[in-house]
């Protein structure tokens, strides 16, 4: 009787401490945020200015030394080529892509530039188990191709579906994406290639905080031209690339269901539990098992002793 009570107490205490461990660990994990850089840079994309000339794509191709395209960059037939209404997306040979949209409420098409949005708290970075990704103080989310093992977790983690996989290479299969021209330009105080190439200055480079102010200024000064929303100000915890549009963002291919919380926050608590489960659970349950086994063994020994005693008595 006494043994049973103590075992129950032990179980209770064990589970209690396990639960406490979970919550305490979760709390410490939450405070471990990715460092934010207040002076980081970004680009404001004003879609009301973009004319779909694809100069940015051509500049990116030249800057990143990507293979020559199948069609010249001034070929606009590409905008209509999507199968089943699908749009072009970034891949190993295209780090940025322009897509055309024809929203019914306006009489002219809008063009959306896609590239890495260089999140403030990048999901790709937090998902990478070899720490290939870095968020630089300038704002770029870069990666080290030498350590990338090609696991493609970042492709799943990215809410914007940006990292692309080099499927064409069997020997060097790895992730490729826009690096904000970090190595070749940003570090040397030059504008990113696409920004420099844009004839309409639909791309404006600057400190993120100031870009938000300018975006607000544009919205305030021309309410007919813009919707009152800066895409990327809060989406996925905020991105370095920000967008202005003349129609609601969901009409031009943006995912407006992306939470304002960083993507990491959705999985942080669960991920914090994983090492806890791996380190605490094995000794805990092994302990339970040993206790239970010892009791059974003690019972067995006692019975055997009793039998021996009985035999001796006989």
């Amino acid at each position: 009787m006494k043994t049973q009570t103590s075992r129950r107490t032990l179980l209770k205490k064990g589970l209690g401490s396990a639960a406490a461990a979970i919550f305490l660990r979760a709390k410490t994990a939450r405070s471990h945020n990715i460092k934010r850089y207040p002076n980081s840079c970004g680009v404001l994309v004003d879609m009301t200015r973009c004319i779909g000339c694809r100069s940015c794509e051509a500049a990116c191709n030249a800057e990143q030394k990507l293979p020559s395209p199948a069609l010249p960059f001034d070929d606009r037939s590409l905008f209509a080529q999507g199968r089943h209404g699908s749009k072009r997306r970034t891949d190993e040979n295209h780090f940025t892509v322009i897509n055309r949209y024809d929203p019914p409420e306006i009489d002219h098409p809008l063009f959306r530039k896609i590239q890495c949005n260089h999140c403030q708290e990048p999901a790709c970075l937090s998902s990478c188990f070899v720490n290939a990704y870095t968020k630089t103080p300038e704002g770029a989310v870069i990666y080290n191709p030498d350590v990338c093992v090609g696991c493609r977790t970042c492709m799943i983690a990215c809410p914007f579906y940006i990292p692309a996989f080099r499927y064409s290479s069997a020997l060097h299969p790895q992730i490729v994406k826009c690096q904000f021209c970090y190595e070749t330009r940003l570090k040397n105080n030059l504008l990113p290639a696409c920004v420099e190439a844009c004839p309409q200055e639909a791309l404006l480079f600057g400190k993120r905080e100031k870009l938000i102010k300018i975006a607000r200024h544009r919205i305030r000064n021309d309410r007919d031209r813009y919707v009152d929303h800066i895409y990327g100000e809060y989406e996925a915890g905020g991105t370095s690339w920000l967008y202005l549009s003349s129609v609601e963002f969901d009409q031009v291919g943006f995912d407006t269901t992306i939470p304002h919380e960083p993507i990491l926050n959705s999985v942080k608590n669960f991920l914090a539990m994983v090492p806890m489960v791996l380190t605490i659970w094995p000794p805990l349950f092994a302990g339970f098992h040993l206790l239970a086994a010892r009791r059974a063994r003690a019972e067995k020994t006692r019975q055997e002793n009793n039998r021996e005693k009985a035999d001796e008595d006989v």
Binding site: G206, K207, K210, H217
Partner: peptide, 18 residues
């Protein structure tokens, strides 16, 4: 020639900032 939000004319209140 070069246009960024890093440089530019001194703003006059709400004007000339963009």
């Amino acid at each position: 020639r070069r246009s960024t939000a890093l440089d530019g004319a001194e703003p006059h209140g709400n004007y000339h900032i963009d």
